[in-house]
Design a protein around this nucleic acid. Structure first.
Length: 383
DNA sequence: AATATTAGCAACCGCGACCGA
DNA sequence: TTCGGTCGCGGTTGCTAATAT
């Protein structure tokens, strides 16, 4: 089928939005919702195409957008998720509440990518460039590791999205009244979360102990709602029931066995995307690695496209602890090198103090990388 | 002070996926 | 099943501000 033009471009304005246009769009959406983007410009009295309106709203006017400097935690999350997901900005944005995919994309292209390149790390593969260190066995391992984890994550995200959609369809009617009430409390995502708990029988918990409840617990001010990204097709909070998260600073990855694994041994191999989320501090005992040990035979490499995710569709076990440790340490090391950029930012003195301390560590970056890689077990299914 | 270069970011473009008729 | 409409995503462009020369 041919692609239809997004709009009749004759007479439509392009380029930067004026405050008046912003006001019109804002007022209209606040009163009516956006509805059909295609029809919106006419109704709102804007000489713009619907696409432009949607973009303006999504990336700029939306009231739940957080603007300004990215925190270290956010940077860390972006790097981690990019290592796993690649340029899937919308998926990354899902885990960075109040940040748009466009903003994340821009930040990556203007800051993080350069930083990695400066460090001799390929921003695409997140592995050291060959010309930087030469060929090292561990590098091959890390490349394979990241590649496999990306496959895991890609498949899992798709499955989660599918699961959420199906759950929504199954019980939308019965859910409606409850959802409305809870949305009034500003916890629409929480309602969906509880809804999923009600309608989706929890599969057996992952075969891991846990020392703490879900890491994706409510933030102090917003709860799961904060995790939503309206621009994303995958509402993260909807999946938080069975999340395993956290390899941010001072956090370790865990599985929330109390909530069960909605995705069938579901796990999350990526970071704590929200600085406001509760994280497990490094001094906590009994912290559990995200990925239980698995033999190579148990590892299933997912195709990029696949059918519905269910416990029966895969016998895969999550990657071993060493893998998460690798990524965790890898990203932490990356962030140690964020000093260069952050030195120019004086609005966060506390962070800068820590960064100064980390500066020396950055000098040992490559040694640490190699140590991490070499410490990974050779029988890891990811290697 | 003037000019050139670079960085940052908002917005556009094209494609593919989804959905309903 | 096909087709057209719509939407969202990711890549890219182009403008503006900041910095360097």
């Amino acid at each position: 089928m041919g692609r239809s033009p997004c709009c009749d471009k004759v007479g439509l304005k392009k380029g930067p939005w004026t405050p008046e246009e912003d006001q019109k769009l804002l007022a209209y959406i606040e009163e009516h919702g956006h509805g059909s983007w295609r029809a919106l410009p006419g109704k709102a009295g804007l000489q713009r195409c619907g696409k432009s309106c949607r973009l303006r709203w999504t990336n700029y006017l939306r009231p739940d957008i957080k603007r300004g400097k990215f925190s270290l935690q956010e940077e860390q999350t972006i790097i981690q998720l990019h290592a796993l997901l690649g340029n899937r900005w919308s998926a990354i944005a899902t885990h960075l509440p109040k940040r748009t995919d466009n903003e994340i994309k821009n930040y990556w292209n203007t800051h993080l990518k350069k930083r990695l390149a400066k460090m001799g790390i390929d921003p695409v593969t997140h592995k050291p460039r060959c010309d930087a260190l030469g060929s090292v066995d561990g590098q091959n391992k890390s490349a394979a590791n990241l590649s496999h984890m990306a496959q895991w994550e890609s498949a899992r995200l798709e499955a989660e999205a599918r699961l959420v959609r199906e759950s929504k369809l199954r019980s939308e009617a019965s859910f409606h009244s409850q959802s409305q009430a809870q949305q009034q409390l500003g916890t629409s995502s929480a309602s969906l979360l509880s809804h999923l708990k009600q309608t989706t029988p929890p599969p057996p918990p992952p075969p891991l102990p846990t020392s703490q409840g879900s890491v994706w617990s409510k933030s102090s001010n917003g709860g799961p709602l904060d995790l939503e990204s309206p621009t994303s097709t995958l509402s993260f909070s909807e999946n938080a029931v069975h999340s395993v998260v956290g390899f941010g600073d001072n956090s370790t990855t865990k599985i929330d066995s109390s909530e069960g694994g909605g995705g069938g041994g579901d796990w999350r191999g990526y970071g704590n995307g929200n600085p406001t989320l509760s994280t497990s501090s490094s001094d906590e005992k009994e912290e559990v690695a995200a990925f239980p040990t698995a033999d190579a035979d148990d590892m299933v490499i997912f195709p990029t496209t696949q059918g519905p995710w269910s416990p029966s569709t895969t016998t895969a076990k999550p990657p071993p602890a060493s893998s998460s440790c690798f990524v965790e340490g890898f990203t932490d090391l990356l962030l140690q090198n964020s000093d260069d950029d952050d030195k120019n930012n004086n609005d966060n003195s506390e962070e800068e103090e820590d960064e100064d301390e980390d500066e020396d560590d950055a000098n040992n970056y490559w040694n640490n990388i190699l140590n991490l890689v070499n410490s990974s077990p050779s029988n890891s299914p990811l290697f």
